[in-house]
């Protein structure tokens, strides 16, 4: 059995604006189920790249294929209805209710009303929005975080192959952003959707992505898993972007307590405990705050392991 073609494939793609190569010879292959974060400073071409994929911007050179098919072989609209799209400020249609907003693509695809209604119910639940309260509400009644949840639900409505997200959380306050990141991580895990996510926030990229592409001046400077990036930054630009001083802490942030813990070996019951799903950075923070060298690791209220300072330092 041969491997299925990558869901998104960019080959030597460039976009030129008045002589400036905003995207320059980018090649990228995204396998099914990948959560790809494209990260870089303002003007590096990350937003342009994502828009090239759904043809909001047409590329000038190279080829872009989706499941092996050249994107220009589709009608623009057909292509876009197969891809969910989420933008920074939500971009909800203010004159439509939450339900009608979420139903945008299903309506365009001609779904039956009862199927649309069921799908909306399902998505509101997935995005942790109370259907009774929000279904008939107009967007201006919603908070920024709620609007963005609806924006994600709308993008997922017709069960697209790919979810494209252009800095979806950068306008939100830290607490709301954190909650939405957690929701998105859960949705990625539950649905296995391929997600391409543009951000300028390295912590966000490292937290969510399975693959990170670092861009600078139209090029992809490095592509790899968060761990690969942190362990072996390709050059000073990437190292700088990872935050030279914070690199060690970020390394801790991408691994869970469960992944480094030792078997239970009789730590005293009064030793502070930490959830197995917490990352190692939280574990270190807990040790520093409580002045302990070791923590008990709990899962579902049961002690499942022990974590020592030495375990964190080990590479």
């Amino acid at each position: 059995m041969t491997d299925a073609p990558p869901i998104i494939q960019l080959d030597h793609v460039s976009k030129i604006y008045g002589g400036v190569r905003a995207v320059d010879d980018v090649s990228l292959s995204v396998a099914h189920g990948t959560f790809l974060a494209i990260i870089g400073p303002s003007g590096c071409g990350k937003s342009t790249t994502i828009r090239l994929i759904n043809r909001l911007i047409e590329h000038d050179e190279g080829s872009i294929r989706i499941s092996g098919e050249e994107i220009r072989s589709f009608r623009e609209e057909t292509l876009r209805r197969r891809m969910g799209y989420v933008i920074q400020s939500g971009g909800l249609f203010p004159h439509w209710t939450v339900e009608r907003n979420i139903a945008t693509v299903p309506v365009l695809l001609g779904w039956k009303p009862e199927r649309i209604r069921d799908r909306v119910t399902e998505l509101l639940a997935l995005l942790q929005l109370d259907a009774n309260r929000f279904r008939k509400a107009y967007p201006h009644r919603l908070s920024g975080g709620q609007q963005q949840r609806v924006g994600i639900a709308r993008a997922l409505a017709a069960d697209p192959d790919v979810l494209l997200m252009d800095e979806p959380f950068s306008a939100l306050d830290p607490i709301t952003r954190n909650a939405l990141q957690a929701s998105l991580a859960r949705i990625h895990k539950e649905t296995g959707k391929t997600i391409v996510f543009v951000t300028h926030d390295m912590d966000e990229a490292l937290r969510l992505a399975t693959q990170v592409a670092v861009m600078d001046r139209g090029h992809i400077v490095q592509l790899g898993t968060p761990r690969e990036l942190l362990h072996a930054p390709a050059n000073d630009f990437v190292r700088g972007f990872l935050g030279a001083e914070d690199r060690g802490l970020r390394l801790l942030a991408i691994e869970t307590a469960a992944s480094r813990m030792r078997p239970v070996n009789g730590l005293a019951a009064e030793t502070p405990a930490i959830a197995a799903g917490s990352d190692l950075r939280q574990a270190l923070s807990e040790m520093l705050a409580t002045g302990q060298h070791a923590l008990r690791v709990e899962e579902a209220g049961r002690v499942v392991g022990e974590l020592y300072l030495d375990d964190l330092v080990r590479l």
């Binding site: 623009e76 609209e77 939500g90 249609f93 203010p94 945008t104 693509v105």
Partner: peptide, 23 residues
């Protein structure tokens, strides 16, 4: 009409005509 709304309309796959009449 906010630019973000227009971009969302196109990004969702509304044709120009649909975007004009519906949004």
């Amino acid at each position: 009409v906010p630019a973000t709304v227009q971009e969302a309309a196109r990004g969702m796959g509304l044709t120009r005509r649909q975007s004009f009449w519906r949004v």
